[in-house]
Write a protein that binds this DNA or RNA. Structure first.
Lengths: 172, 172
DNA sequence: AATATATGAATGAACG
DNA sequence: CGTTCATTCATATATT
């Protein structure tokens, strides 16, 4: 949809055939950008307002407790996706919160064997878990509003955290 | 649909007119839209989280309140990242499994032009693809190899690997 | 049951 | 090159 740029190839052979945009098209693009800009502004404004009212933020994690997997009935249903048992989650969280970042392959193996005693896991599962855990942790911290004390002086506008684009083209 | 198909009209007749945009300029515009889209997503997510927290306090439901964009179906899904088409994947896998490791720059160029006939692709994309392919192949080995002797049965085959994987195409 | 959210997995791109 | 990040997809689980 957005890539209509390469559509116009057929007008002439190789010479002054370029990607052209009519005023109309330009206008369309302009309004799209405009619209997004407006939406962003709106959202930022809303966000600020809400933050102002926000004071009691108790980040409670929803402890999901699911039934025992080995409760008599044979659970032969082929699971398509690994689901850590509560015990495994506890161990993983513990390790993660221990500040021990970037578990190496060796460490992964150790953790995996440890977890294996509480249910079936693979190294890949553990690896993915840490990857996801870290990524998610970062994302959730998008707005950790410390109303108590201003510790971090360096901060950007709410919407710009993710806007940074680091283009590094390896190219040829 | 915000993108009318009047895009092509201009090139048909004598109306060679018009504002031209280089690919570079198009890219800039695309990036802007993309960036705004990303920011919006981020803001919406933050918003949602905050609303959820507020709900736990007052039970008030504000509902979704971000306008437009979905009503008209004008989904600006500016693709920020290259996604190889099935045909391209097939070719790439084929080359990769051909044992020809670490394609040279020249080879990359060749492959790129070959792939270009099946969809837009840059040399950087190809380069990255091979890097990733190799790295992940190795990782899998690392995870699988140190076990016993018979666990070496897993090797990707060019023709079929993950049939259940949903292929999402992108229009051009 | 339908929708929403949480989260495991896959992968393109970037970094050192 | 190996490792890590960021984004996306698919599904398990929770909520209405």
């Amino acid at each position: 949809m957005l890539y209509s740029k390469s559509v116009i190839e057929a007008s002439a052979e190789g010479v002054l055939c370029v990607k052209v945009m009519t005023d109309e098209q330009m206008e369309v693009l302009r309004s799209q950008i405009s619209a997004y800009a407006a939406i962003c502004e709106q959202l930022v404004e809303m966000h600020r307002t809400m933050i102002a009212h926000q004071d009691s933020l108790s980040g409670m994690r929803s402890g999901h407790l699911f039934p025992d997997q080995s409760s008599g009935g044979a659970k032969i249903s082929a699971k398509q996706r690994w689901t850590p048992t509560p015990a495994q989650v506890r161990i993983l969280e513990s390790i993660f919160c221990h500040g021990n970042r970037t578990p190496s392959k060796q460490r992964i193996k150790e953790i995996t064997s440890e977890l294996s005693r509480h249910g079936q896991v693979s190294e890949t599962n553990v690896y993915n878990w840490f990857q996801n855990r870290r990524a998610r942790s970062k994302r959730k911290q998008a707005f950790a509003a410390p109303s108590t004390t201003e510790s971090e002086a360096e901060e950007e506008s709410p919407g710009e955290k993710k806007a940074k684009k680091k283009m590094h083209f390896h190219d040829s």
